[in-house]
Amino acid sequence: MRVVLAEDLFLLRQGMVQLLESYDFEIVAAVDSGPALLDALVTLRPEVAVVDVRLPPTFTDEGLQAALEARRRCPGFPVLVLSQHVEQLYAKELLADASGGIGYLLKDRVLNCDQFVDAIRRVADGGTAMDPQVISQLLAVRSRREPLSMLTPREREVLELMAEGCSNTAIAQRLVVSQGAVAKYTTSLFAKLDLAPADDSNRRVLAVLAYLNNTRVDVS
């Protein structure tokens, strides 16, 4: 799989290149600044981009802006955004186009190589990978007065994993239950939250995230 990597810290960049190469990814470019990233994305057309939020030259949110710009030019272009911290604000912006193929993870998640690589693959396939911290923040804010409080603990766990972007199979593995059980939980929680059921697991994830995000005040 062809990957473009953007990370300004040399050690982290090298480490990530090694890690991804050991999982048989092809690193077509490893860049260290915002303009170089956009350039690489446009000319090399990789299958997925792994991007750090903060990049030179301004050390603000260059990487995020480049990722959003690439997705504006080419809707649905798969981008996995990495950062030292996660912000709901950024998650909302990344999810705003509701077209999938998006990931937003803490850099810490690289420590767990298998899950990290799995997240990259998921994003490249048009899926979603949201950091558990983003999801738990969203739930913490929403759960005070929402139908969310009607969910059983198990349903809540399923909802969290689903919002992170896991498929039924992955949820079943993580919770050590059968796939049938997961399907049952998802049906009942969709009913409780009054969401239209969707067969496609990716659409389902986006529906959940939109539910968690949208009824909040609009970002203007």
Partner: peptide, 14 residues
């Protein structure tokens, strides 16, 4: 970080 990256308005939004 969001203040450094985006400025006051977005940081308050966050």
């Amino acid at each position: 970080p969001v203040l450094a990256e985006r400025g006051l308005a977005d940081a308050v939004q966050a």
